[in-house]
């Protein structure tokens, strides 16, 4: 076992993965909060001291309950949230971008290379634009194409890749079902030819039969277009199916991280164990084996001291119950990192 200093390298079991594309180093995101104008200013600790490395070509999963900081971390990596401390490096072929230190031109370049797919395909598409215009908008805003003809070509090309019917491009979003809309959102995200995609709960709003279709499409596009994903989800069975590497977040901290098969077969942290046991089993004979977690995720305004999970932990040790053990990841198996409180 080695103690963590600085950054962590998660070696994945999957081959074909190259160098790091994204390095997140000691990133924290805080928000200012003031209940009303006379009360004291407080800080919401949304994301605390996160270290992750996302390899080129990987499908990196981020799971946790609502309020665990998954989305905030995803947005911070895209430069959509201000990073309070630490830095995020995007390793492009020619040069590295440091997200905390970018000029306007750099930011513009970065936006072409890193894109976001949203959760709700009903809210994410403007009802007043045709599908063609929705997909073409990034090209026009980022001035990637110079002529209308070129734009149309790119739109048709990406629409075909996302299995959208070319004849449908002149229609408006209301004519489409949830799955088709999500394919439009994916086409819009991919049209600028990005290398890195953050998919934030991108299948959560879909029916299971369609969810499988979108997941297969994301996988297929990954190999076709050499994409790297950060896949944010609260659904562990989905993450287990598509992701190579998974990080489990709780109250702004990563409590466990590792290659997805290893992590789901051999979970070490009691939060991961509880999450896994909470998934309703499809077998009616296996009822209520859930490790029930008492209560709910505490407020990020004043998180518990020491191990943040100790207030809900089903079997806390004496030390961690008192909050005397600091948060910090420890490597238990090659590439499998667990918060030290649950290892001791």
């Amino acid at each position: 076992m080695s103690q963590v200093t600085g950054s962590i390298n998660v070696e994945s079991s999957v081959v074909k993965m190259g160098n790091n594309l994204i390095s997140v180093n000691n990133v924290s995101v805080n928000f200012d909060y003031q209940e009303n104008f006379i009360s004291k200013k407080q800080k919401i600790h949304a994301v605390n001291n996160i270290n992750i490395k996302i390899k080129k070509g990987s499908f990196f999963g981020l799971v946790g309950e609502s309020g665990s900081g998954k989305t905030t971390l995803g947005r911070a990596i895209l430069g959509a949230n201000k990073i309070s401390s630490g830095n995020v490096i995007f390793h492009d072929d020619e040069r590295d971008y440091d997200l905390t230190n970018m000029n306007k031109q750099d930011l513009r370049d970065y936006r072409k290379k890193a894109q976001l797919i949203f959760q709700d395909p009903y809210a994410a598409l403007s009802p007043r634009m045709t599908v063609r215009d929705i997909i073409a908008e990034p090209l026009e805003v980022m001035k990637i194409t110079s002529s209308r003809q070129e734009t149309d070509e790119r739109v048709r090309d990406i629409a075909a890749k996302c299995r959208l019917n070319i004849e449908h491009l002149r229609r408006f979003p209301h004519a489409f079902s949830g799955g088709q809309r999500q394919r439009i959102s994916i086409a819009r995200a991919l049209v600028s030819n990005p290398k890195f995609i953050v998919a934030d709960e991108s299948v959560a709003a879909l029916d299971v039969s369609i969810q499988a279709d979108i997941l297969n499409l994301l996988k297929q596009l990954q190999t076709e277009l050499n994409l790297t994903y950060l896949f944010i989800s609260h659904d562990l069975s989905v993450v287990a199916h598509v992701c190579d590497v998974v990080a489990v977040m709780y109250l702004g901290h990563i409590v466990e991280m590792g290659p997805s098969r290893e992590l789901f077969k051999n979970p070490k942290h009691s939060y991961t164990k509880a999450l896994l046991s909470s998934i309703p089993s499809i077998d009616p004979e296996k009822r209520s084996e859930a490790i029930e977690l008492r209560g709910e995720i505490p407020s990020a305004l004043n998180p518990p001291s020491g191990c943040v999970f100790r207030t809900r932990c089903p079997n806390p040790g004496v030390d961690c119950k008192g909050g005397e053990i600091k948060m910090g990841l420890t490597e238990v198996e090659p590439g499998h990192w667990v918060d030290q409180c649950c290892v001791i």
Binding site: V208, S209, I210, Q211, A212, D213, L215, N216, D235, L236, S237, V238, A240, H241, R261, F264, L276, I279, I282
Partner: peptide
């Protein structure tokens, strides 16, 4: 078949 099963990760997801 479309449902991802955490106990059987090798099964492909087949949409309807």
């Amino acid at each position: 078949q479309a449902l991802p099963d955490i106990n059987n990760l090798d099964a492909p997801l087949s949409p309807i």
